[in-house]
């Protein structure tokens, strides 16, 4: 079965190789995230003109929208990594899946918080049971469930496999929740506000948004590298390569 996996992926999947690779990648990712983040914030908060209808309030989208994208993107990464971990039992995939979850949960939380701030200014309420907001909330619960299940096991690898299974169940669940909440909203004729439905985004608003999206991606990579490195050290505590690193640090 292992012949299905490309050789380079297989090599990268070995903990010492990945540990070294992530260690080299991480400073670059942090630097790039900071640089892009500052440029995007400057572009979004200073250069971009105020919106015709929303004034300056719309500027929260430069945080809100990239966070929302990341919350879904990281869940997808977690789902794929979990699948790989369950099918091929690759330790690194377990680590990637489980260390993605807290980052994804944080982005989901930021999305909800900024969304509700924006909602207070636009709709006059902190919370509406809109399909997107509700799906995002359910996504947060899914993340928390995965994190909770992972930590409920004493054996971390077993916990990772169980929580990975839950993550895959969640991948199926999110679209169903979105669809059903939409149906529920039409039934109750509640507020069907589209966040960015009608308004076309002008070019000088779009580039900071896309730059911020890249910045969040870089941040995720940097954060994942750091977390995965720490986790690998803990998981492989008894192995020789970890001993060598520990001896090197002590010197």
């Amino acid at each position: 079965m292992s012949t299905w996996i490309p050789l380079w992926l297989h090599r990268l999947g070995s903990p010492p190789t990945f540990y070294a690779f992530a260690g080299r990648l991480r400073p670059w990712a942090i630097g790039l995230a900071l640089l892009l983040g500052i440029v995007a914030l400057y572009g979004g908060l200073v250069l971009a003109p105020p919106d015709r209808y929303q004034g300056d309030d719309y500027r929260i989208i430069f945080i809100h929208v990239p966070s929302a994208w990341m919350s879904l993107f990281i869940y997808a990464v977690m789902g794929v990594a979990s699948f790989v971990a369950l099918v091929w039992r690759i330790k690194l995939a377990e680590v990637v899946a489980m260390e993605s979850a807290p980052v994804g949960a944080a982005f989901t939380f930021i999305t909800l918080a900024t969304g509700s701030l924006w909602g207070e200014r636009m709709w006059g309420t902190w919370w509406t049971w809109d399909a997107r907001l509700t799906s995002e909330l359910v996504l947060l619960f899914l993340y928390l469930g995965v994190i909770g299940l992972y930590h409920a096991f004493e054996d971390r690898r077993q916990g990772a496999r169980a929580a990975g299974f839950l993550a895959i169940v969640g991948v199926v669940n999110v679209p169903i929740v979105h669809f059903s909440v939409k149906w529920w909203n039409t039934l109750h004729q509640g507020s069907t506000v589209n966040l960015f439905g009608q308004s076309h985004i002008a070019g000088d608003m779009l580039w900071p948004l896309l730059t911020m999206m890249l910045a969040t991606k870089c941040y995720y990579v940097a954060s994942l590298c750091g977390r995965a490195r720490a986790d690998l050290l803990a998981l492989e505590g008894g192995k020789d390569w970890v001993r060598r690193i520990a001896a090197g640090e002590a010197r």
Binding site: T134, V138, L149, G170, S180
Partner: peptide, 27 residues
């Protein structure tokens, strides 16, 4: 079944089940 290998887990089960129950409840 997923929580079968863990210690007592009533709250965790509720947290995990809630997202799955939303569509059922809605319909």
């Amino acid at each position: 079944a997923l929580t079968a290998g863990t210690r007592r887990s009533g709250m965790l089960l509720a947290l995990m089940l809630l997202p799955l129950c939303v569509p059922v409840m809605i319909f």
